[in-house]
């Protein structure tokens, strides 16, 4: 029970990465490698702030803000200096590897004895979890999951509402068809910078939460996050097909949770952890190709 709950909690926590990748990659067609670095950055900044006694909520926001700054730098490399998206992200994430190490001071810092955002959430939501007949350690885990779900719902709602405002709609238009947005007076470079700031603040939020959930920050923890995000985005899209913005945002989160389940199941079934990244790549590939194959099969049967 606890394993299942914690798998879910982790999946939801990483769902913020998936949301970030949804914004950068799906809305802006920007394959943003910064994701790997900004995940760690969020974790590192939040951890350092927590250890120095800053309030957990503020520490988490601090991590988010750092991610936003990193994302906007990547955006500026692209929009102002004209460096292509992949290279902009690679440069930024390379620079972040040093920055993260310097900020954290060493490669791994534990959060033992520090009250985290999740501890606070657990205390607050424990009565509710007991009400739902969870007991003992499971109640604590359920309370944490409940908090994560609330946070996720909040993030999806805020993003959904934002992307339906004039500014958010202009951003989506600029990501979809830059020629159109510019012809209608939008500064697409500035919109890209803003979009990547949003995307990487979500990724950094995930890092900050994961550090507090697992009880430590590690400078290596962001490796492969961009692939994780893409896997979730594609898995979600494969599940629901063509949907509007709100559905796509929710599906992205669902994709992350399901992907985490798949990973947990594979490990339990005896997958050597060394092969985990390989398996991730295979899942992304499958999620990419399967919908296209299904559509082709469907079209073929309609044609017949």
């Amino acid at each position: 029970m606890i394993t299942l709950l914690s798998t879910w909690t982790f999946g939801v926590a990483l769902g913020f990465v998936a949301l970030g990748v949804f914004v950068s990659y799906k809305l802006f067609s920007f394959p943003d490698i910064t994701t790997d670095g900004s995940f760690t950055l969020g974790a590192v900044v939040a951890t350092v702030l927590l250890v120095s006694g800053v309030d957990p909520a503020l520490a988490t926001l601090g991590g988010m803000a750092a991610g936003a700054v990193a994302g906007s730098f990547t955006g500026m490399l692209h929009a102002i200096l004209g460096i292509e998206p992949l290279l902009s992200g690679i440069l930024m994430t390379t620079a972040l590897a040093s920055i993260n190490l310097v900020v954290l001071g060493r490669s791994n810092v534990p959060l033992s004895g520090v009250k985290t955002l999740l501890d606070r959430a657990e205390t607050t939501l424990l009565p509710a979890a007991r009400l739902l007949t969870f007991e003992g350690a499971a109640a604590g885990e359920a309370a944490r999951l409940g908090f994560m779900l609330l946070a996720a719902a909040g993030a999806v709602l805020v993003l959904y509402l934002f992307f339906r405002t004039r500014l958010g709609t202009a951003m989506r238009a600029g990501g979809d068809t830059p020629t159109m947005a510019r012809a209608l007076g939008r500064n697409t470079g500035a919109l890209t910078v803003f979009g990547l700031a949003i995307a990487n603040s979500l990724t950094a939020l995930s890092g900050a939460i994961v550090a507090q959930y697992q009880g430590f920050a590690d400078v290596q923890m962001g490796i492969g996050m961009v692939v994780w995000g893409m896997a979730s985005v594609y898995l979600g899209a494969a599940l629901v097909g063509q949907v509007r913005l709100g559905g796509a945002l929710l599906a992205t989160f669902a994709g992350s949770v399901i992907f985490r389940q798949l990973v947990a199941a594979a490990l339990r079934a005896g997958l050597d952890p060394d092969w985990l990244k390989f398996a991730t790549a295979v899942v992304v590939l499958t999620a990419l190709v399967a919908p296209r194959l299904l559509v082709r099969r469907h079209q073929a049967s309609v044609a017949r």
Partner: peptide, 28 residues
Amino acid sequence: AGTAASLTVLENIAVAACRGRRAGLSWA
């Protein structure tokens, strides 16, 4: 080139309705 394919017709028009103005945070 002149329309954003993934946005609805009305959302495209909403972007055009702000041509040359601040976009802002009111509903599109």
